[in-house]
């Protein structure tokens, strides 16, 4: 369930944009290659960063844990001759892998569909510019920025059996995060749920779409929000282990 959502979401979104660009191709003929790529990738990034990525993480964290809640298998997992730490870490690693997979697919599909557009509509100037490495860096940063949320949501889903609590908390926090980051609140970098949005904002040039000049693209991988995200991820991950140890299986 978590696995398929991690695969289908990037496919769907990229496909949608592909269709959008494809059907409006006449209007885009005059746009220079770099702007074309930026609009294409930027549209995907914009949706992802603000709402979709956090919600996807909420869902992945939930689905990884809910398998065990539903089958009531926590008790049998924790009564196997395997260190509790390994069970906990293995579960987390899987969620971690799913988020990574999803973001990698986004890079892949963005580039893939972009190139497909340039083949199908040679009039579009997609082949004038290449942004593979930039895009990979942006998504890497996005991934790092989302780890704080992942740890928090993972712990919530581990503790609560039902979907509503982690979902509700995650959703509310995401909205708050988007607002905080969107309003440029100066402490937004301290709030994990703002990090993906901050990442997107910092990498996308503000004047995108206005067509004024050729924008400079630069990815500064290690900004303070990324450090906060990584810090939160590690601390919550370790804290979660001790909570799991203490809470026992009831």
């Amino acid at each position: 369930m978590g696995f398929w959502s991690a695969v289908l979401l990037p496919l769907l979104i990229c496909l949608l944009l592909f269709v959008g660009f494809f059907s409006h191709s006449e209007k885009l003929v005059s746009v220079p290659g770099i702007m074309l790529w930026l609009q294409f990738a930027g549209a995907i990034l914009g949706v992802m960063g603000s709402l979709l990525l956090p919600m996807l993480i909420v869902f992945i964290a939930y689905s990884v844990n809910s398998i065990e809640h539903k089958a009531d298998t926590w008790k049998s997992l924790f009564s196997l001759p395997i260190a509790k730490w390994s069970v906990y870490a293995a579960k987390y690693a899987y969620a971690f892998f799913l988020v990574l997979l999803c973001l990698m697919l986004f890079v892949l599909f963005t580039i893939g569909f972009g190139n497909l557009l340039s083949v199908l509509k040679p009039t579009l100037k997609f082949n004038e510019y290449h942004m593979e490495s930039t895009l990979a860096q942006v998504y890497l940063k996005l991934f790092l920025s989302s780890l704080g949320i992942l740890s928090i949501q993972f712990l919530l889903s581990l503790l609560f059996r039902d979907f509503l609590k982690p979902m509700g908390i995650g959703f509310t926090a995401t909205i708050a995060g988007v607002i905080l980051a969107g309003t440029d609140w100066k402490y937004a970098y301290l709030f994990p749920y703002s990090h993906p949005m901050l990442t997107v904002k910092s990498t996308l040039p503000h004047d995108i779409g206005k067509g004024s000049g050729i924008p400079e693209l630069s990815v500064d991988l290690f900004t303070k929000d990324i450090f906060v995200s990584l810090g939160v991820a590690v601390v919550v991950f370790i804290l979660g282990y001790f909570i799991v140890l203490k809470k026992s299986v009831k």
Binding site: I67, K70, A71, D72, T73, S76, S79, P81, I82
Partner: peptide
């Protein structure tokens, strides 16, 4: 813990099964 659990087989209440 691990050494002991490796010699125990257990079934608690409803069996834990992936449906």
């Amino acid at each position: 813990r691990v050494a002991i659990l490796s010699e125990i087989g257990s079934l608690i209440e409803q069996p834990a099964i992936y449906l």
